[in-house]
Design a protein around this nucleic acid. Structure first.
Lengths: 333, 333
DNA sequence: CAATTTTAGTCAAACGCTTGACTAATTAAA
DNA sequence: TTTAATTAGTCAAGCGTTTGACTAAAATTG
């Protein structure tokens, strides 16, 4: 049987309340009893039962993270960032993965509610209305991570439009005028979608023509990058650069270009997105825009902490900047 | 205020116990009351308070995962595997990262105990005696993942000696006799250490000489692979193959070899370890031994489930097999 | 020195649920 | 028709803490 307050109380000869207060540092005891209580507690190896404590305090010091997929480095790194800050504030982290499925999301919101978590971090799907409503109904403080979300809920993300705009601008500034794009899933209303927008806007603002056959859709994975690049190469050999919406597709593109007998960056430049470790593994090394995954985690958890503490947020929507990492795959012409 | 059993009980006109039993599917009520209770529960949006429930049942349906580092793909994938099985059994997962630090490990074991988790999965450092004792003292079912551990505690891992033996054997079978190794940290008594053993054993069993200057130590990261390879190249140009204890070091090696004006695999073959995505990104693609990370997660959680259910384990120590993935970086001579 | 404040506690309720023991009424069996 | 068994509940204790209200003794103040 686990040691309880009662055991200590009996042994010392005081009531549980006294023991409780002493152990919580409330100075309502003589020096002697205090010392005796600490002594006995240590001797018995007392560990407070947080469940019992939570029942009365209505705080679990636990937060729930609803996330798509831990085996994806991107999400794993934001989870890692979250965990670090949570731990700093003495919060535990319950992680639930959903694969972006709405049913799962709903299920886990309910579960977390039942577990009485003090807050929820949502880094999963596109946050359907059902989730938003449920979240609102449960009244648990929530912040959304790395996902676009209309209105109300506090959130932290990167500005996909702006950052891909910058990537393409970088290509343009390097003298490229014929720029293809390998996009992610076009219709997910998320990064895949927004990055195309940034690409188009950059072309437009610089008087370049948007050619739809030069935007080919991948699925963010390496193989799709190879296939997409092959298709681009088929349709138009005159391009001098390509913007890939992920590093995996970027290195896929490099592979395809090399296989076609062309050189990177001499014949075709490529820029990726993510700054995944694989951008360093490819040959040539991939120039890319780095996403601050860990920082996304940090900020979201800091933000959640603020709202759990009942403080007002200065900003309810935070955009973290990305950075272009110049390596070997883009040539100045 | 949250809806409680009492609210339902009052509204229906029965006692809390009846409501409790009905909601838990214990058939001690008439069809009418049962239906009425479900109706009212739904109407009020009742969600059971698991904290209160846990206090009496002494089960939290939560398990704790103590892990080194989530931003490391290897551990992230193990965690992902664990989460999937945990979720299958309706267990929640509290994740704590330690960076392999013993103090942190101890801290989290205590914390998890206080949170009354039903079980612990330990995938962190080398499991110092202090942890083992604490774990034993807390009496929480525990299984160790991906870490060597002497005796008692159930565990699941890969056999590092055997698998690296096989990798080197594969090189030997391909006709190589002069094989260097880029190892991980030599003295960690973990994978770094054991993989060297496997390498040595394979050489020995095949009548090849072990030359200590051909084993150079890295830290599993890409950059260290480059440096290690440069050193090897300096000391001996006659080698025809190198075994890298990680894929990152493997692609580092490839980079260094290419920079030295040599070709992979024509001049020097290289084999890695992990089957990380970067093995696909490199040029040439890296032949490697794939580790079953997700499966490590699955099995450990399945095992933990068995012991939480009080069942006896058929095997207390499970080794999962790896597989050699043949790609482009090894030549047959 | 009486009045007040402080100190060092005690007592009991409460948090929301489960569960064993009990009861009254109904149904089935003999 | 009496007895036994089943059904549909109720009652109250208990899980391990916290916490507001209370009290008796000691210390401080005017």
């Amino acid at each position: 049987m686990a040691v309880t307050l009662k055991d200590i109380a009996e042994k010392v000869g005081v009531t549980e309340s006294t023991v409780s207060r002493v152990l919580n540092g409330i100075p309502k005891a003589s020096k002697e009893t205090r010392e005796e209580i600490f002594r006995v507690a240590a001797e018995l190896g007392y560990k407070p039962n947080q469940i019992a404590r939570s029942l009365v305090t209505k705080k679990t010091h636990t937060i729930g993270l609803i996330i798509s997929d831990l085996s994806n480095t991107y999400f794993a790194r934001v989870a890692s960032g979250i965990e670090k800050i949570a731990s700093k504030y003495d919060y535990s982290l319950i992680i639930s993965t959903t694969g972006g499925d709405e049913k799962e999301e709903l299920k886990y919101i309910n579960l977390l509610k039942e577990k009485q978590v003090d807050g929820i971090l949502f880094a999963s799907g596109r946050m359907p209305a059902s989730c938003k409503n449920l979240l609102k109904e449960t009244e648990i403080p929530t912040v959304v991570v790395a996902r676009e979300v209309e209105e109300d809920l506090p959130s932290v993300h990167i500005d996909n439009i702006k950052e891909s705009y910058n990537a393409v601008k970088y290509l343009i500034n390097s003298g490229h005028h014929n720029i293809a794009m390998i996009s992610g899933n076009k219709d997910d209303k998320e990064s895949g979608f927004y990055r195309i927008q940034g690409y188009k806007q950059a072309l437009k603002d610089n008087g370049l023509k948007i050619r739809d056959d030069l935007i080919v859709e991948g699925d963010f994975k390496l193989q799709s990058g190879i296939e997409a690049m092959e298709e681009i190469l088929k349709s138009d050999y005159s391009i001098t650069a390509v913007f890939a919406a992920s590093d995996q597709m970027g290195v896929g593109a490099i592979k395809a270009i090399k296989k076609a007998g062309l050189k990177v960056p001499d014949d075709i430049s490529v820029i990726g997105f993510d700054n995944n470790i694989i951008s360093l593994a490819s040959d040539p090394e991939l120039t890319t825009v780095s996403q601050p995954e860990e920082e996304l985690g940090w900020h979201s958890m800091e933000m959640l902490y603020q709202v759990m503490e009942g403080r007002d947020l200065k900003e309810r929507k935070i955009y973290l900047p990305c950075e272009i990492i110049e390596r070997e795959s883009v040539r100045n012409i």
